[in-house]
Every structure is written in C-alpha cells, then in structure tokens.
Amino acid sequence: MTALLEAEQLTVGYGAAPVLHSVDLTVAQGSITAVLGANGAGKTTLLRTLSGLLRPATGRVVLDGQDLRGVKVEQMVRRGVAHVPEGRGVVTELTVDENLRLGGLWRRDRVDAKRALDEVYDLFEPLARRRRFPGHQLSGGERQMLALGRALVGRPRLLLLDEPSLGLAPKVTAQIMGLLRTLRDRTGLTVLLVEQNVRSALSVADTGIVMSLGRVVANADAATLRDDEDMRHAYLGF
C-alpha cells in the first residue's frame, strides 16, 4: 500500500489553546477511511487543516510525497484535493448549474470539465431536473448531492467529506456510501469520511480512526472497529 496522504504531528487551534494535539494520520491510496468521534472531538478541524483552511501550529501534511506547507487553499484543488465542508457547502445564492460549474472553473481541460459536469447530472437525477433552481430552494439531500457533485466535477484524487449523511434519509445515505465505493473502485479515488453515523461509515470504509478530545485514540481496520465493543462503548456510543 502506498500512502496518498500523511499528516505528521499536527497541532492546530483557533486561538491560543490547541484543538488537535500531535495528530498522526496515514491514508492509503485508493482507500476509504472513516473518521469517527463524538461532537467536538476535532474531526472538522482535522479536515480543515488537511485542506489548508487552517494552518497547523506545528507538524505538516504531505500529499503524494509533497509537503503542503505554504500551499494556498485555492491551490489545493489543483493538487487533487476536494473538501466538501460540513453542512453549508452549497452557495445558496447561486443556481445548481452555477454551483456545479464553479467546481470545474479552475480546470484547463474545458472539454473534460464539461464531460465531468454531465456525468454528475447523470449521477444525480434530481439535480438535472433543477439546474436553474437557486441553491436555497433545494432540500437537504439535494444540497448534499450538489456539494458532492461539485467536488466530483474537479475529478479529485482525495475527497474530504464532512458528515455527508447529516439530515439525510437512510436510503439516501446508503446511496451516497455506495457511490463512494463505486468511485473508489472505478477511479481509484481516496476518501476521508467524517461521520456521526458510525454504522454506515464503517460499512463502507476500509479503515477507521477514532478521535477524542483532539487526539487519535484508535486506528484500525473497519472490521476490527466494528467488532471492538469496548471501543464502541467508550467513544462511539453504541
């Protein structure tokens, strides 16, 4: 297994006190990694650091052998990193079509950008029927499809997903999880999946990490985590 993403000794905070403490993380190329943990554990903070929105006080992030220190946020997408942020990724004032086009504007290959956009419309039927709707008229599930679809227009290598199942019906959640699997198998996409819905995350993930109070407290196969009762009781609550 080769590592696509490595985080070394990340310490990150919003003010004086750090929120993440010396976090180490390795994500294998073509894997799906679930990031689990209670509210406030630091999952979102971790993703924001990996995509460059937050600068670590110490430590570094390495993508495909390249140190990302000093790389601007707006350059990350050009390196193949797509971050779908928690909850409000859709620009609600823009239409569905504008949101999707925004995902491919940075690309030089206009032909493939257009093709990727069409693929997203094929993938998400409801979006194709609402191309001219402003984002604020979409349902929660449609917004999640839009945010995810917009990331896919950029044909990322690494997808950082922050709670994609938030507020979605179990059926839609299952569809999204299935889609991640398919993308991984077909295109070699690597996924870092933050989830409160532990069962569905572990059903699709290859490995999982468990965070608590800004530290990684477990790092194991998805199957191992599923079967580890003590771990589930202590950190995952089921």
Binding site: S51, L53, K72, V73, E74, Q75, M76, V77, R78, A82, H83, P85, R88, G89, V91, T92, E93, L94, L102, G103, L105, W106, R150, G154
Partner: peptide, 10 residues
Amino acid sequence: FAPDVSRLLG
C-alpha cells in the same frame, strides 16, 4: 457569497 467554499474550489 461564500469566500471559504470558493477558495476550496480554486
């Protein structure tokens, strides 16, 4: 409308 999201999209 959404500076952070826009930066993430390049």
